[in-house]
Design a protein around this nucleic acid. Structure first.
Lengths: 267, 267
DNA sequence: CAGTGGTCTAGACCACTGG
DNA sequence: CAGTGGTCTAGACCACTGC
């Protein structure tokens, strides 16, 4: 009999009214079994029981562990795979998604060169301009759901493609989860920033929300992006979330769009 | 026995190597049953057998019709619902998605007011500036996969929210599928343009691809959007597709982003 | 060859809708 | 109440991977 840690009481039993006896009597809060399984898997992911890039137990193993049928586990995994949290590979297993993989390297960066595919210009050069620790201001507090007075790490960097600066970014991170992150660590790391966050801080960015505007380049922005004051830039404000919709990063990007464009599929 | 029109030969039989005996010998082109069912449903949708807003037959009916199990039909419908082509409503049935519904009114328009929810400023005012019929130029031919010399309808309009002009759009449509579309018809129609396309021309837009840049307002654009020359505008080029990825519209939009922003979720 | 995910089936039962 | 989609199960078999 496997070591069961989660289900002290069997899952199947009554509707499992999660919302205890609070004031919300109308909705019985029925939650299907596979949703509960999904929640348990999510908990294991957040706790780091299975790390990015690793495989999780097979469907049959999980079925035994959770005492449900394999089909129910399958449906839970299906949803997690659809949300890009897990990655299924037939014949091999199911893996925790990671930003370190080549395929999904730029999943969160929607800027692509006008001609040619992503990465056709070679790898991006990342230059950290500055990095410091400050007290979060009102904007950041709201975006990251912090408390007034909380510390944040702030970084500014420029991304260049083929030698030409294209993106200027200001980044804010809550200091607590990223304890120990220094300017050197950031500057020396080759590869996507989100991959660093995974391996060093066990923080995996899962989804993000972006608000996009057109703005005129300020003198400071123009200088860093090697263009003229007043040049139209794409302003991209991103809030990135970890598991359970916890906001973990605020990023304000300014994109030159004379050789690149932001690409989006809507359906 | 139901009137079977599609499956002259039973579906189940051998792997059904769709890619006939062309040059591609390595891949056996195995296609699961539910994918084939999905294709058949897609064909019925395109042919207009079930119109937008209407319900399609129940899963059990379709299972009988296609001679497969209900679970297989279910999986096909699941995918179509995930792609927003169908809409499931428990207890009622499965419906063909439509742009006429209030909920999905603005599914393709990602511009939202900076404060408040979509539509909080009341309905959009749509003003057709001009509408004419021309020969497609190279750009349009490429975007809509036309043949040189083909006719297109071109329209220009301004969308205003709360009385203030926010969006200027140039729209190109292939003349053939939209035969009979006039400036009056466009100008007089209240409601989303895509809803008109559905009811009048049996053309349903299913997905779109947008390329976004920041540009400076030209004198003409500034005048129509009631702003200054040089104001940064969001340039949004959209190609919209019907069923089977057929391009059906090219749209070049210019958005003022001083009171609104383009919102995007990335995962 | 064994182990994984992927497909397909058949049947039971539940939740929701509307007459 | 009947009809619809939604959940859950159990079992058989297929396709893919790697030893």
């Amino acid at each position: 009999m496997p070591a069961l840690s989660e289900p002290k009481t069997d899952l199947k039993s009554p509707p499992l009214s999660v919302a205890a006896s609070t004031n919300a009597p109308s909705t019985p809060a029925f939650s299907p079994l596979y949703q509960q399984i999904k929640g348990l898997i999510l908990n294991s992911l957040r706790a780091g029981e299975w790390k990015p890039g690793e495989s999780i137990p097979s469907e049959t193993d999980l079925a035994v562990r959770y005492r449900v049928s394999q089909g129910t586990v399958r449906k839970a995994i299906d949803e997690l795979a659809a949300e890009n949290l897990l990655l299924r590979r037939q014949g091999k297993g199911t893996f925790v998604a990671t930003h370190a993989e080549q395929q999904v390297q730029f999943r969160f960066l929607r800027l692509v060169p006008d001609t040619g595919a992503r990465g056709s210009e070679g790898p991006a050069q990342r230059n950290i301009i500055e990095c410091r620790r400050t007290r979060a201001n009102a904007d950041v507090i709201k975006a990251l759901a912090l408390r007034s007075g909380d510390q944040v790490l702030q970084a500014r960097r420029v991304l260049s493609f083929g030698g030409a600066p294209v993106i200027l970014e200001d980044i804010w991170l809550p200091a607590a989860p990223f304890k120990g992150l220094t300017a050197e660590r950031l500057a020396n790391y080759q590869g996507p920033m989100y991959a660093l966050f995974e391996t060093e801080f066990n923080v995996r960015m899962v989804r993000a929300q972006e608000s996009i505007r057109a703005v005129s380049a300020t003198p400071a922005q123009a200088a860093l992006l090697n263009t003229h004051v007043g040049t139209p830039l794409l302003s991209v404000e991103r809030i990135a979330y970890t598991y359970h919709d916890e906001p973990m990063e605020l990023r304000r990007g300014y994109y030159r769009t004379d050789t690149h464009h932001y690409q989006n599929d809507v359906s």
